[in-house]
Design a protein around this nucleic acid. Sequence first.
DNA 1: CTCTGTGCAAAGGATTTGCAGGGAA
DNA 2: TTCCCTGCAAATCCTTTGCACAGAG
Lengths: 141, 141
Amino acid sequence: MEKNLDIARDIHASGLKVTAPRQRILELFHGGRARHLTAEDVYRLLLEDHDDFGMATVYRVLMQFVEAGILVRNQFENGPARFELNTGTHHDHLICTSCGRVEEFVDAEIEARQEAIATRHGFALVEHTLSLYGQCHRCTS
Amino acid sequence: MEKNLDIARDIHASGLKVTAPRQRILELFHGGRARHLTAEDVYRLLLEDHDDFGMATVYRVLMQFVEAGILVRNQFENGPARFELNTGTHHDHLICTSCGRVEEFVDAEIEARQEAIATRHGFALVEHTLSLYGQCHRCTS
DNA sequence: CTCTGTGCAAAGGATTTGCAGGGAA
DNA sequence: TTCCCTGCAAATCCTTTGCACAGAG
């Protein structure tokens, strides 16, 4: 189907060989079962589909996709890193400390102020992380 | 001296026994040799003062101080956690990706917007982390 | 056919924990 | 004297790496 061709093309365009682990993993992210996955999540979801690629391969592929700009890696608190598709648009996160739910948001004013603050402190801003931790509506009730 | 009495009092007020590791570690932070220290940094600085408390003790004491509200723990990127004295006033960080330098800042507007964003998403905000990564003035020149 | 990829197991860094002896209160 | 602390070593969690074989181009 169309989507699988796109996936193969994206992998190939990154200078990587089109192999089963890479295709399945990228399909997983496009499948939308969840948007922010840990390496462990990816490994388990693949297992459910009867694809057992070792954790080492999962980690390697995830990092290659991050380097290729296909995925973005987020490090929340102490826990394991979470990966999401790179939509091309920057955004920050809201994380529910009870259920782990992750929501995204963008605030132009905050972005602008960050730039101003960096400049004021003599920093050449490269990137930033803004994570809001709290309880989501489902968990507060 | 005065300061050591304060330190002993703070430790005691947290319901902890006043022991050598706890006093030396807290003195270290009050000494101002550096504001954002990793457990490793603390361990090494103590060694320089000829105090060899094991890493396990350093970690335990640091966490007890965090729980007591004496220190604040910050997790930047992937690296080891950094601890700083809790001044009572919240602030965010600018981290130089070249030399590791850490500067602090507060922006009321950003704080307010975070609250608004959390509310809009139905989250009861508990805490947040805003870290700006870039190159400081010394490293860009 | 030639490399890049993969799988396994072992290594790695940061942090935590179990246990027995040591020391504040 | 009584627990709380400490130190050591071993364990844990997440992630990376070395190596020999398999498979994409």
